[in-house]
């Protein structure tokens, strides 16, 4: 995560799977890099991260006396400041207009996560049926999904959501393209017709694929 360009970006086609009749590749998404922001703004954006880390400390440490609380607050501050450049600075996972992701619509997760959980349960039951079926009726295929997002975190969310849903695994991401392995033809069709890419776009309040 130390640069905007993954080594395979730019259409070198390194993830071509030998011998498969896959759809042709299309263009990749241009990488955006916004100008660096002031120290004060970065500090302000680090504050929520520190609060989250301190909350984590409170849950994990059962000793809530002044000494351990101070220790936790100091640790949270240090970790937040050290990891600030991973989260707040533009290149890796921030939006191109310079807003940090800590200001994104977090409340939408409350709707996205249950939707994804239902999808995971339904797909789990389907895959379990396949695995226990005497004839093992799997028909694996590889497919490409296109989804255009302005930042990496949305791509990461879509790739992780696809993998989390049983029956589909994201094998590689190259710009806008997601290389997906599906356990059955119908799992692949379901994903191609799925509203998941649009929901991820809505989750981050960005323009969709």
């Amino acid at each position: 995560m130390n640069g905007p360009d993954p080594p395979y970006a730019g259409g070198s086609g390194r993830f071509s799977c030998p011998g498969r009749d896959m759809p042709a590749r299309v263009g990749t998404h241009p990488t955006n890099r916004s100008p660096p922001r002031s120290f004060g703004l970065r500090l302000l954006a680090t504050l929520p991260l520190g609060l989250i880390l301190f909350g984590l400390w409170l849950v994990l440490s059962p000793k809530w006396d002044p000494f351990h609380l101070t220790l936790g607050a100091l640790t949270a501050c240090v970790v937040a400041l050290l990891s600030e450049r991973l989260i707040v600075q533009p290149p890796p996972i921030a939006e191109p207009d310079g807003r940090t992701l800590l200001w994104m619509p977090w409340h939408r997760f409350a709707l996205y996560v249950p939707w994804l959980a239902v999808r995971v349960v339904v797909a789990s039951l389907q895959v379990t049926y396949l695995l226990l079926h005497p004839r093992l009726p799997v028909s694996p295929r590889v497919l490409r999904i296109r989804a255009r997002y302005p930042h990496t975190l949305a791509r990461l969310t879509l790739a992780n959501s696809i993998t989390l849903t049983p029956g589909t695994v994201t094998l590689d991401v190259d710009g806008d393209e997601f290389l997906v392995h599906a356990l059955t033809e119908s799992a692949g069709h379901d994903l191609e017709r799925s509203t998941m890419p649009d929901r991820v776009a809505w989750l981050y309040g960005v323009t969709g694929p």
Binding site: V120, S124, V127, V138, L164, P166, V169, H181, L183
Partner: peptide, 13 residues
């Protein structure tokens, strides 16, 4: 690749 799916099932649900 198919075995990846089996692993995914047991780990998620």
């Amino acid at each position: 690749y198919c075995r990846l799916h089996a692993m995914g099932t047991c780990d998620t649900l």
